[in-house]
Every structure is written in structure tokens, then in C-alpha cells.
Design a protein around this nucleic acid. Sequence first.
RNA 1: UGCCGGAUGGUGUAACGGUAGCACAACAGACUCUGAAUCUGUUUGUCUAGGUUCAAAUCCUAGUCCGGCAACCA
Length: 578
Amino acid sequence: MTTDNSTPAAAPTNKHFVRQIIEADLAAGRNGGQVVTRFPPEPNGYLHIGHAKAICIDFGMAQEYGGRCHLRMDDTNPAKEEIEYINAIKEDVRWLGFDWGTHFYHASDFFGPMYAFAEALIQRGQAYVCAVPQDDWKDYRGVPTRPGKESPWRSRPAAESLDLFRRMKAGEFKEGELCLRAKIDMASPNIHLRDPVIYRILHAEHPHTGNTWCVYPMYDFAHPLEDAFEGVTHSLCSIEFEVHRPLYDWVIENLMAVRAAGKFDSAGWFTEAIAGYQGPQQNEFARLDLTYTVMSKRKLLELVQDRLVSGWDDPRMPTLCGLRRRGYTPFAIRNFVETVGVTKFNSLTEVALLEHCLREDLNKLALRRMAVLKPLKVTIENASELPATVEAQNNPEDPAAGTRQIPLSRELLIESDDFMEVPPPKYFRLTPGGSVRIRNAGFLTCTSVEKDAAGAVTNVICRWSPQTTALKVKGTIHWVSAPHAKQVAVRLYDRLFTVPEPDGQEQDFKTFLNPQSLEQVTAYAEPAVAAAQPGDKVQFERVAYFIADAYDSQPGAPVFNRTVTLKDTWAKPQPAKK
RNA sequence: UGCCGGAUGGUGUAACGGUAGCACAACAGACUCUGAAUCUGUUUGUCUAGGUUCAAAUCCUAGUCCGGCAACCA
């Protein structure tokens, strides 16, 4: 069985607008022909499939255009961030197949130069210390349709602001008492330009810088600076930041001006300076949204806290750790992201597409095994003619995977769905008097059945014929030898929600939780299954793909998570079965 | 009702003034020692109304609808 994750990068399928922008920049010689991107998660939660899109784009573009991508913890808010998430984020990005080399940063690495630049802005008359209380600011800011009004502190002399800002930094004020605002335009139709706060006071211990600071930069101020200090050329983010771009550009423009004016020592700012660096530009693309899934951190947290799932890595969660535990492969996810494409259109992608990409990968790499989930006993009349074992291919899609021997005996177990006393039309499996092929081991012809008092079939008596028999049958079923069967715990996972859009309904999203999203059963498996190692991916033939759970499997006693079922074009048109 | 984006089959995307293509889904068939995979075929689309042009998904005008923006969050 395989744990192989060393799959190739997804091949570009189309020249989406980000590729076009980068190619145009390259052609124009912008930034010395370099491409530097970054993935900047806030370390306050686990990464999910939506982040995977951003990761694939950020790292993918750098890879494709011979540049590099930085991994950066966007830790500008000590009140919300925790160090424990950082390692999980690194693990998930690495698992997805990306490498940031030595370019791992924290936004907080740049608190010094950010602060210095803030002072420079004050000196240039472009920022001021404001004492309007947070609650009162609503009146000053105005609403989108009406301009705001200026803060009474807006025209405070630069020297006074500078003094106050330094005393803010020195810890002389309480949280909320003062803040530093960029002086832009209170009448701007863009709210983000109405003198946004760029520094606030937070008397909190920062997970990375400890108690060094008690003033912290806001996202809109910090992010463009982080990008610039790292020498990022293309700052790719999701669509909700589009309205922030004018502010992003304002910061960059002033940074470049301050630097050009040589107002203060800028040595060491550009940690990864590149020849001809002109500054970063932000471009926005639509987030990924999936049917039968919720994606917001808040809602995922709610599922975890309310114990509706077993944790962030519950195999039903859309988190990367959940998907990994479910048996998803990095290649499937990367290929999915490439297939979905990159646009500004706010779309809802069907999970079926994700599942298709998964099956496509698993079909190539998962070893085949046989296991019966709902057993029905078969007794072979002519057992003396049976060989002790039969040989089976480990993966018909990959001859290199080799073969194995499977024991055979008088008593077999078959799937109870694979026998019907009164079959519907076009039923290709076992019926009284009928024959089927049993996978890798010849044929069975049912001669009689035994039933219990309630009339349920308890034993199907069959005659066995070898593979060489010239029997024409339409169906092949899987089986295991009852005395050799290993009992293994199996978790049958299904989608977490019953409706395509659990969000955006009138009722709470939890109303739509699928009560059948997890069914635990004991399967009867051929002996080879017991040797599965944690993380091994297998296909139980005719049933589904499974993975040996990374945490709950014991030596010789793997626990299997159902990754995704095989497509079943027979079950669908059949009316609901018992 | 302000600003910024966006709109192509059921879904996701391509076409950058010149035959609306691809993938998923659905359906039908072929093949098959997995009713899987594979292969073939079918159904379904340019938001609306005007305009420019020999020619418009593409350019222009007006409208409609959808998303985002009023944290000292990111």
C-alpha cells in the first residue's frame, strides 16, 4: 500500500488573468524581471481547502515563472494569534507540496522598520495621533454615501504627534486612548481612505515579539510594508481586499517616496532586495467556495467546539489536516485548484469536481484489496475442488504493484447486496440458480439457500467452477474467505451537510448537518489488509477508496477511513433499497 | 439610492472583433474478471435592450442581477 505523495505539479491548463498580468510585467521588465510572491496566513486557525487555492496560486506562480514564494505569518494582532498554529500551517503547506526555502518570515520581523516608517509619515505630515474614541469615530468616518468629517486632531503639529506616538510606544497610554491615523481624505468615496487607523495600542504579549511592543500596526498599513520589505513583486490576495488596494498603493507610494528622499536610514529594510525593485502590486482573485461545505473559520471552529466533529482534523472537515486524514492526496488538491481556475467571479464549485480529481489520482496509486462490509455467508458444495489460494493483481492500473495470494475456503463471505432472491431486471450479481464470477477466483452458481425464521437468507449454497470454465456471466463480485477474514474497523464518511449551500440559508448552518456523515462498521477483509500501515491508501474493490487512519491504527489492526466511494452507476437508478 | 468588482450550459472555466471550446455533472452506448477505470456519443450556454461593425461573448450606451466595502480584525 502506498503513502506516496511525491506527485508532479498540476500542469497549467489555462492562461488566467494572474498569469497574464505576470507575463505582461515580465515582458515590460518590471521589477527587474523577477517574480516574488507570498502566502501570508494569520496564525489564528487551521488551513482549509480555500487556503489551498491561495497556496497553489501563490507558490504556483512563483514556481512557473522562476521566482520564489515566501511563507509569512501575518501576526500583527497579538490578541488573536497563537504560536501553536504556526507549525500546523507549515506542515500543511509542505504537505501540499510547496517549499519556501529559507524565506520564512513573520510580519512581526518588520515591526522596527514599520514603526520607523510611521514616524517618517508623521514627520511628512501624513499621519497624526488621534484621540477620538473608537465609538465616536463612526460619526467622523461617515457612511459610504456621505463624506466624513475631519478629526479635531488632524491638524495637530507633527512634533506633537511624534511625541505622542513615541509615548504610545513607551506604554504611557491605555488601549484605545490614542491611535495613529494616516491623513488621507475624509471625503473619499472609499471608506478605507478616510484617515484609517494605522497603529493601535495593545497591551498584549505577542507570541513572537513578546513584550517588546505595545503599539501594533493595522493590516492595511503593515501588509504592503511586509511585501515591500521582503521584495515581493506580486501580492496576490482574495477579492474582498480589492477595495483596500488604493490604501495599499498609498502606503507603497509613500514608502518609495520616503526612501527616495533619504529621510532616514533604510538599510536592512529590503531583506531580499532585488535589482530594479519597483515595489509590490496587489491583485485579487475570487475565493474558493464548495458545495456541501462551510468554509469560514468561525463556522469550522463552531463545529469543533460544539463537538459536532472530532476535531480540526476530523476526516469530514475541509481543513487540510482533515482532508489529509480522510485520504486526499496533495496532487488531487493541486489538480483541483488548477482545474477550477482563477477569476474574479464569485463562484460555487461542486464537490463532485474535487472528488473526481481525487479518484483520478487514487485510481493510479491505491492498491486493490477485497473487503466485505455487510457479509452474507456462502457455502461451497464442492469445496474439495478449491485451490488453497488464488493470485490477484495489486493494482490493475499499475502492473509494477505486483500480485498477492488470497486464501480460499469452503466458506466465503460476500456482500449482502450481491445476492438477491428476487432480482430486479439487469441485476448482474448472484441469484438462485444463477452464476457470477468471484473476483480472481472462478465462478459461483447458487444451488439453494438457507433462511432464518424471519425468512432472511442466512446461507447461500453454491457450486464453484474454476476460472477456465466457459461460463458467460455479466457480473463479478468481491468476497473473502470466512475463516481467513480479518475484522477491521471501518468508518464510512459521507458529506457533512445535506444541502449544497449550508451557508446562506435562513436556518443555522448546523441544521443541515448530515446525521449519516459517519457510520462505523466492522468489515471482513482479506489477510493482506491487516498489514496496512497508517496512511496507506487502498481500494476495497467495488466499494470505495480507504486510508488506514494515521492515529487510530494499531500494528496489525488498521482502522480505515472511507476516502471516497467508487462511482456507482448501478445503485443510483435503483429505488431506495432497504 | 456612494464606491469597487463581476455576469458564458446544471457547475467551474476558455475564446482578447472572425466556426462559442474544455472539464465536471447528467444521459446513452461500447468495452470490462471492479456495474470502477477506459472509450464513443448526446442534452444544455454568451444577463437584458439598444448601438458601432462585413462580422460582437468580446467594443460603446443604458438597464438588470450578484458579490464586496462603513473593526483601533486579517
